[in-house]
Design a protein around this nucleic acid. Sequence first.
DNA 1: ATGGCTGCTTTGAGCAGA
Length: 259
Amino acid sequence: MHIATWNVNSLKVRLPQVLTWLAAHPIDVLCLQETKLIDERFPEAELSAAGYVSAFSGQPTYNGVAILCRRDTVGIPTEVVHGNPLFADEQKRLISATVAGIRVVCAYFPNGQAVGSDKYDYKLRWIDALIDWVSPQVATQPIALLGDFNIAPAAEDVHDPAAWEGQVLCSEPERERFRKLAAAGLIDAFRQFPQAERSFSWWDYRQLGFRRNAGLRIDHIMVDQTTATRLVGCRIDREPRKLPQPSDHAPVLAELRSA
DNA sequence: ATGGCTGCTTTGAGCAGA
């Protein structure tokens, strides 16, 4: 079973790439962020024709998340929950569902804009509420938290740690919250395996960021300890970032052996 | 040097992203 996460930065623009990627890889569960589509415009029919059933939660212009489930392997997502019951939020950043016995939480963490800003404040409060909501669930069921965390957890996840020191995405309060998720029992799947140095999941569109590999690792797959024992591998697929008109993020995928 | 891209928006300059 393969699970994956991809911030597509507009599903309207990226749908052809998503369909091509799904056709080329045996993905059973794909979490999407920044769909930027209202629910009426979600391409449910196209994805269904490709074999995927979707749970989605969108709004105009910004945010928007979805969980795509391969119908013939994992079936339809059940017990779909929109948002965090502990945090009233007009922004559509969170959707969760049970898929193949795993509680799948698809998250688009706030960006935070700049340390000290109102948006940064909102980011920290949003993450605190996520921790409060998810932590008690970790011990009780198999769970996977996938998405764009907008946190580079450590210096090795940053192309230029000195330049990013203390900046948004790398600040200590953000990293502390990432560690809190780990302390709640969630394991960073990517770091369970040997990885190339300078492995990133996002590169700035500007200044030839991708060509220079000037990136950050901010998209993550975290799983509970029992589910972690099923992990076969976890990697970032840089290939879609090389296509014309790419998302600025690359997909992250993990393979789980049968329970 | 706070720009540089990209996608979005009651179409067109301003916002947000990271």
